[in-house]
Amino acid sequence: MDHSNHTPLSAAELTESNLVGAPIYGVDDSKVGSVSHLHDSGSTGKAVVDVGGFLGIGSKPVLVSVGDLHMMRDQNGQVHGMTSWTKDQLKALPEHKD
């Protein structure tokens, strides 16, 4: 996926209404997870990313900084994120419990 035409979200757009459900892609453009919810908004907020599983079943929630997800909007208006982590690295993080 060529992300060069995608528009980074502003800090004001880093809200739960914009990010929940957004897929997160790793460096090789494979989907590594999706955002399930946020703790605070903006670039200093934390996102709970569901990693692994199928259709949300059997996934592991992990907590990461929103600023580390490089959230953007594609030319169709769809929000997604990029991270330098692999799926295995995210799975190795401690499970987040609300």
Rank of each mutant, 00 (worst) to 15 (best):
Q89M: 06
D29E: 15
N76F: 14
N18V: 02
A11T: 15
D68A: 15
G58E: 08
T15W: 01
L93A: 01
D74R: 03
V51N: 00
D29C: 08
S84E: 14
E16R: 07
E13T: 01
L93I: 02
D2R: 05
E16S: 13
T86V: 06
V48F: 03
G21L: 03
E13N: 01
L38W: 13
G58D: 06
D68V: 03
V66L: 09
H6N: 14
G42H: 11
S34L: 13
M71Y: 10
Q75I: 14
R73W: 08
E13A: 05
F54S: 05
L14N: 00
S4P: 01
V51A: 01
L90Y: 03
V51W: 00
W85M: 03
D28G: 00
S43C: 05
G42M: 09
Q75N: 10
D2T: 04
W85F: 13
H70P: 01
T7H: 08
L19F: 07
V64H: 04
D98W: 11
N18A: 12
G45T: 04
D28Q: 08
E13Q: 09
G53F: 10
H37D: 13
H96F: 15
S36A: 06
S34E: 15
P94F: 05
K46Y: 07
M82D: 09
I57K: 07
L14D: 00
S41F: 08
L55Y: 08
N76A: 14
V49L: 07
R73F: 08
K31D: 07
G26R: 01
L9P: 00
D2S: 07
T86S: 11
H3T: 15
S30L: 10
W85P: 00
S65D: 15
S65G: 12
V64C: 04
V35F: 13
L63N: 12
S30A: 13
D74T: 03
